[in-house]
Amino acid sequence: MSGCATGIALYDGTARDAAAVVVSRYSTSFGLACRLLGARVRPHVRNLYALVRVADEIVDGPAAAAGLSPEAIRDLLDALETETRVAVARGFSANLVVHAFAATARECGIAAQHLDPFFGSMRDDLTVRRHDQASHDAYVYGSAEVVGLMCLQIFVNAGRDAPTAPPAGLVDGARRLGAAFQDVNFLRDADHDLQALGRDYLGGDQRDAVLDRIERDLDAAATAIPRLPADCRRAVTAAHDLFAELAMRLRLAPPGSGRVRVPDARKALIVARAALGRPPRRRHAGAVA
């Protein structure tokens, strides 16, 4: 196939399209929130989420369902990490999802301090079956808080000539929003995680205590969202409020009632509210420590 002047632009665009397909197939809520992002940041967030999703799928069942041994699954995760690091360094990958992420990482300043804990948490899923408080916190940092920090790098730096460090207040908000999202997912999926994957992420924490922590983190994140760049606030508000709604429904749901979800009509109202520029929902107006 002969080369042409637009060859790399075509490849870059195809990689972004591949990442967008991953987002649309794996998370309707996330895909919905992404539509509220400005054009400056939307492709980058999709590029990030697609890589995170692929890594998560390697350790969460599809690879095992394809017949891979635990050792082969670990090798596959290691290979994905290595390919990601090499692609970020050289600016190209034969893996379209990795290529899309690498372009985002290079532009927005996503680096080893983000990738190390993320892949470390993914690796923990292959060996850790029951978490205590310390391992829970370390896992949440690597699997969720760091994802929030990578999103923040995108929000602050997409389109800049050179990336800069985000303000400390936004860093704290990004971490706490990521932690809240992950703890909500742990509560929603607790039965599936234990029965299908043999994992207990909450290590015996009482449900109400976890929900209290989630609400504090969501309230803390809500104070940071208005300080984000304008083309990011609506999408982050929509994601925040969708998870606040899930937390409320988890609080009200009796044990054993099945996986809690937000009905489509309610989901649409939450996204519409965010699209109109309304501030993120807060349960407690007081302290957010």
Results as ranks from 00 to 15, higher is better:
Cys4Gly: 15
Ala5Arg: 13
Leu10Ala: 15
Thr14Tyr: 15
Ala19Asp: 11
Ala20Pro: 07
Val21Tyr: 08
Val23Arg: 08
Tyr26Arg: 06
Ser27Tyr: 01
Ser27Met: 06
Phe30Thr: 01
Leu32Pro: 00
Ala33Trp: 01
Cys34Glu: 02
Arg35Cys: 03
Pro43Ala: 02
His44Asn: 06
Asp56Phe: 14
Asp56Thr: 10
Glu57Ser: 09
Asp60Leu: 07
Ala66His: 10
Ile73Ala: 04
Leu77Arg: 11
Thr84Tyr: 01
Val86Tyr: 09
Val86His: 14
Arg90Asn: 13
Arg90Gln: 14
Phe92Asp: 08
Phe92Gln: 10
Leu96Thr: 06
Val98Pro: 07
Phe101Cys: 02
Thr104Tyr: 05
Arg106Lys: 07
Arg106Gly: 12
Glu107Val: 06
Cys108His: 06
Gly109Ala: 10
Ile110Gln: 02
Ile110Tyr: 00
Ala111Trp: 04
Ala112Cys: 00
Pro117Arg: 11
Phe118Val: 08
Gly120Glu: 15
Asp125Trp: 01
Thr127Trp: 05
Val128Ala: 05
Val128Asn: 06
Arg129Tyr: 01
Asp132Ser: 05
Ala134Phe: 05
Ser135Tyr: 02
Ser143Met: 05
Gly148Val: 09
Leu149Tyr: 07
Cys151Phe: 07
Phe155Val: 02
Asn157Leu: 03
Ala158Trp: 03
Arg160Cys: 07
Pro166Val: 08
Gly169Tyr: 01
Arg175Ile: 00
Gly178Leu: 08
Ala180Glu: 11
Phe181Leu: 11
Phe181Ile: 02
Asp183Ser: 14
Phe186Arg: 15
Phe186Asp: 09
Leu187Cys: 09
Leu187Glu: 13
Ala190Gln: 15
Asp191Met: 05
His192Gln: 14
His192Arg: 14
Asp193Phe: 10
Gln195Cys: 03
Gly198Tyr: 04
Gly198Asp: 13
Arg199Trp: 01
Arg199Pro: 01
Tyr201Lys: 01
Leu202Ala: 03
Leu202Asn: 02
Leu202His: 00
Gly204Pro: 01
Gly204Tyr: 01
Arg207Trp: 14
Asp208Glu: 15
Leu211Phe: 10
Asp212His: 14
Asp212Leu: 11
Arg216Met: 13
Arg216Pro: 06
Leu218Glu: 08
Ala220Thr: 12
Ala221Asp: 10
Pro226His: 06
Pro226Asn: 08
Pro229Gln: 00
Arg234Lys: 15
Ala235Cys: 10
Val236His: 09
Val236Arg: 05
Thr237Gln: 10
Ala238Trp: 10
Asp241Met: 02
Asp241Tyr: 04
Glu245Phe: 00
Glu245Asp: 15
Leu246Trp: 01
Ala247Asp: 05
Met248Pro: 00
Met248Gly: 03
Arg249Phe: 04
Leu250Gln: 02
Arg251Glu: 13
Ala253Gly: 06
Pro254Ile: 01
Ser257Gly: 10
Gly258Ala: 10
Arg259Lys: 15
Arg261Asn: 10
Ala265Asn: 04
Lys267Leu: 12
Lys267Met: 08
Ile270Thr: 05
Val271Asp: 04
Ala275Val: 00
Gly277Asp: 03
Pro280Ala: 03
Gly286Asn: 02
Ala289Met: 00
